[in-house]
């Protein structure tokens, strides 16, 4: 979207066949530019997580390639994956610590990130003292500390209840508005996809392949009431229809 800058993340004909013969991804090509928030929906097991693992470099694709600067890449996993023996503060500092950021600097960034996700006051708590939603917030804060230009989310809110999920979606939206990173988000909730994204991609059942792409026309900032907009419902219906086709 920003003039002159190319895509921050680019998949070029990426296919993935695992050593055991599982064909997880087929000829996938798409770009995510700074200021774009792309969401992928698709039946479970179609290769969505694989897509992110390839983007982040955890997996090497069998064919094709991914162009991305991984120094500023943040990855939010499906589970909060907090280290149980670290307090919230120390968990949020982890990635910066692994990057070798000086103590003072990372403590300050962690404090900011914790405030941003609404966990101020919980710095000294341990993961076992947090609810599922709070754990996800801490996980989000941990990634924020890196100030990523490319933000990958793998069904991060799949395990929390509906109300918490909507609140967390609002957080993600406001982060996106502030930072204008390139976002790639995986979900199985169509409402979540439409609410967050500038673009929704639909993937087919395995081997996963992009079968449809929908531009989401709503301007940011998006208010929670958007979910009751007739246009929102219409677009969701269309994606839902396409997704049902993707199952066969």
């Amino acid at each position: 979207m920003e003039m002159g800058s190319g895509p921050a993340l680019s998949f070029r004909g990426v296919s993935m066949v695992f050593p055991d013969g599982t064909h997880a991804l087929q000829e996938t090509t798409f770009d995510v530019s700074p200021g774009e928030f792309v969401t992928v929906v698709g039946p479970s097991g179609c290769g969505k997580s694989t897509l992110l693992k390839i983007a982040s470099g955890l997996h090497q694709p069998t064919t094709g390639k991914v162009v991305v600067d991984r120094k500023k890449l943040g990855y939010v996993f499906q589970d909060a994956t907090l280290l149980q023996w670290r307090s919230v503060q120390r968990n949020v500092e982890l990635l910066a610590e692994l990057e070798g950021m000086p103590k003072g600097e990372r403590a300050k960034r962690a404090t900011d990130a914790i405030r941003t996700v609404g966990l101020a006051g919980f710095e000294a708590k341990y993961p076992k003292q947090l609810s599922g939603g709070m754990k996800m917030r801490a996980s989000l804060a941990r990634t924020l500390v890196l100030e990523p230009d490319v933000f990958l989310f793998d069904e991060p809110f799949g395990a929390v209840d509906e109300i918490t999920r909507e609140r967390l979606n609002d957080e993600v939206i406001s982060l996106f508005q502030q930072r204008r990173f390139a976002g790639l988000f995986i979900t199985h909730s169509i409402a979540e996809a439409v609410f967050l994204s500038t673009k929704v991609l639909v993937m087919s059942a395995r081997p996963g392949k992009l079968v449809a792409s929908y531009d989401v026309p709503f301007a940011y900032p998006r208010s929670p009431e958007l979910r009751f907009d007739p246009e929102f419902a219409r677009l969701s219906g269309e994606i839902s229809h396409s997704l049902r086709g993707a199952h066969v």
């Binding site: 693992k53 955890l58 990855y75 996993f77 990635l95 692994l98």
Partner: peptide, 13 residues
């Protein structure tokens, strides 16, 4: 967890 290991792998630990 495998994903905790991934976290460290991503940061080249």
């Amino acid at each position: 967890d495998a994903s905790q290991h991934d976290l460290f792998t991503l940061r080249h630990a």
